[in-house]
Amino acid sequence: MGLLNKLDDPYEGGGIVLGKVEDLLNWGRSKSDWYLHFGLACCAIEFMAMNASHFDFMRFGTIPRTSPRQADFIMVTGTVTFKMADRIKVLYEQMAEPKYVISVGSCSNCGGPYWEHGYHVLKGVDRIIPVDVYIPGCPPRPEAFEEGMMLLQSKISKQAIFNKRKKLEAEL
C-alpha cells in the first residue's frame, strides 16, 4: 500500500507522513470490509473453512454482518436459484453505497453444472447484480478466496473518492 510505504521515509525527526486524503480513506475502506455472507450451497461450506482458524478470513479486516445495512460487500457463495434471485436483488438494494459483490464458485459465476438443464438456476449472479470479483472453482480452495479478497482490496484502494468525474474523463 502506498500510504504505509511512506512511513519508511518520513521527514527527519518529525514523524510526519505526507499523503493524499484519498489514499488514507481508501486504505481504511479496503482494510475494513464488512460483508454480508449469502451462503447458498457447497461454496458456503468451503467458506466456513476460510473463516476458521487455519485460513482466518478476518485477518483481511472482514467482519461478517447479518444485516445488509452494515455490509460493504456481499459474498454470493453458491447456486443462485430463481427463487433466491429475487431475494438477492432485494438484499443488494438494501446495502448502503459504496457496495461491492464477490461471486464465488462456478454456479454463481455462470450457472456451473446447471448451465444446460437447470430450469431453476440463474446462469450467473451477474445477470441481476454487478459483480466486482469472480472467484472460480467448484468449490474454490480457501487460497482462491484469499486472492479474491486481495483483488477486491486492491480495487477499492484504487478508487476515486474526490473529483470522480474528472478522473474518469481523464482515463477515457
Binding site: F82, A85, G111, Y119, K123
Partner: peptide, 15 residues
C-alpha cells in the same frame, strides 16, 4: 414433456 420457460420475473432462464 416440460418446456423450460424463456424468462422468469424478467430473468433469462437459458444459458
Amino acid at each position: 414433456d416440460y418446456e423450460t420457460p424463456e424468462f422468469y420475473h424478467g430473468m433469462k432462464v437459458s444459458y
